[in-house]
Design a binder for these strands. Sequence first.
DNA 1: TCATAAAGGTGATATATATCAATTAATCAC
DNA 2: GTGATTAATTGATATATATCACCTTTATGA
Lengths: 231, 231
Amino acid sequence: MFEKNTIGSCETCTKRWKNFQYLTPKELHYLNEHRYEASFNTGEIIIKQGSPASNALFLSSGLAKVYIEGINGKNLIMSIAKPGRLIMGPGAYVNSRHTYSVSALSKVQACFISFEVFRKMVKENGEFAEGMITDISIKSLRTHNRLINITQKKMPGKLAEILIYLADEIYGSDEFEMVLSRKEIGEMTNMAKESVVRILKDFEKSGIVLSKASKIKILDKDKLKLISERG
Amino acid sequence: MFEKNTIGSCETCTKRWKNFQYLTPKELHYLNEHRYEASFNTGEIIIKQGSPASNALFLSSGLAKVYIEGINGKNLIMSIAKPGRLIMGPGAYVNSRHTYSVSALSKVQACFISFEVFRKMVKENGEFAEGMITDISIKSLRTHNRLINITQKKMPGKLAEILIYLADEIYGSDEFEMVLSRKEIGEMTNMAKESVVRILKDFEKSGIVLSKASKIKILDKDKLKLISERG
DNA sequence: TCATAAAGGTGATATATATCAATTAATCAC
DNA sequence: GTGATTAATTGATATATATCACCTTTATGA
């Protein structure tokens, strides 16, 4: 699985985690020495829920889905991972197990960094520790939103929120090539795939979105936002 | 609201947060100087969602509910707070706003500690920072469980989980005086209060629990666990 | 290129759970 | 203590959404 590193070093990496800016050159160098790259094809599992959490993960290219394997093989997709973001579940600091699974939604180049090194830097570098807490807090805030989204909205509201999330946070554009299948959108919103199809069709009929095969184009974002907020 | 401190100091407090053990005597003293106490009656709001997050909260006595005010005034209770646990939402490190509301479920003695002081100690004391991350991680893990509980289980499973949570994590006993109303249990499980009543009755008929008014006694915990795990 | 699988889609039906309406029990304020 | 609120309970009904069965289209790979 692990291969020759294709990225020169963390020092020069353009996709690196923002929080690395707080590390000293020496620390960054040390980090770089405990780094391993690997590439994955679409559908391959990068991190398996329950396995020992010995590394933090970053993507240098591609997209992946972060999901909890729940009851009776039913998955719950927590978020979509993209380059520049730390992927490390809360289990790392609690039971040293991965809280969730991560699998590639496209060809992915991944960077694994020893969790022990992370831990060391948290202890030694206060700015880095604070950045880490901020990062975890942002994720936590998102989870809270997801919780409200899933529990308190009806289907159109739930779907609308996810479409906005994908456009704003993942693709940075209102027109994108959807990497998630209808079934997977369902796993993000706690909906059956058939329901996803139907609501998406409704949105299309109302002129809110355009969905040709895997291409999604948001036509009326204000309306979509309204649907999302209203529930 | 703020009053004369009734607790001598953090140095001697028996209800203090475990993570304070990593602070030096000097730091602990500093902490103590930025501490304010207040007491609340049942039903009073201790922290209001959206308000500026300038303090971390601890309870020195009593219980409180931590809840998100969602859409159309519908609440989602995240957890029950008790003495010895840090109460600080993810918003503190993101937008300096309280992510959730906290209100007293009984008479509560509360301790507010300046968030700036916390922040300072995270930067200066690596052990403290790590403890903070561990604490946040534990909460995050719980939220993930709650998410699965709410989305993937049917009503009996959801209710069973909450009863086990209350017995194990809050009361430390299988027999307890329930501080939550049926409506509030519903707000923890995303169920209507009527459904809570009905399932609770079913549990009673099956000899799994005994519920007289606000007294709850778990009679068959193994069965309750099974129901919770099965979904 | 054809065969096979996987994803997308549609209508009919089932069901878990909320909502509504009304009654009874418990708690609170004076 | 006693009326007034609030919470708990019960049964009847409504509804959102899942499930099922099936068909169509699009990918995949030998």
